[in-house]
């Protein structure tokens, strides 16, 4: 059972606002989906590996070399605000 408290806790974790009026909608939709995915309980996974890579790739490493970085202009164009070459945000603490 997914409670209102669960929904609010999750919303807080991912910083998504759910309006009071939407809580029961989300509660229902989430419950429906959770109910559907519970079908997996039928499958015995006792001896199955929890490491997964689609093509069984492993140990993909790059050499320790450097490359050119972005111009600050390319960062500035999308940033909320800047001060010289720093990204400036409102006091958020």
């Amino acid at each position: 059972m997914i409670t209102k408290k669960d929904i609010l806790h999750i919303a807080k974790l991912c910083n998504i606002k759910i309006e009071e009026s939407e809580i029961s909608k989300f509660q229902n939709q989430l419950a429906q989906i959770i109910d559907y995915i519970n079908i997996l309980n039928e499958v015995d996974t006792e001896d199955i590996d929890s490491f997964f890579e689609v093509n069984d790739l492993a140990t993909v490493l790059r050499e320790d070399t450097t490359d050119i970085s972005l111009d600050f202009d390319d960062i500035k164009i999308n940033a909320i605000n800047t001060d010289k070459t720093q990204i400036k945000v409102n006091k958020v603490l």
């Binding site: 993909v60 490493l61 790059r62 050499e63 320790d64 490359d67 970085s69 972005l70 600050f72 960062i75 010289k84 070459t85 720093q86 990204i87």
Partner: peptide, 22 residues
């Protein structure tokens, strides 16, 4: 500041990490 940035370490949409062997 911010002179050592690329799409990966800036966390831009679509950028992907690759592990440094060293």
């Amino acid at each position: 500041p911010n002179s050592h940035m690329c799409p990966v370490c800036l966390g831009l949409p679509g950028a992907l990490p690759v592990i440094n062997k060293e």
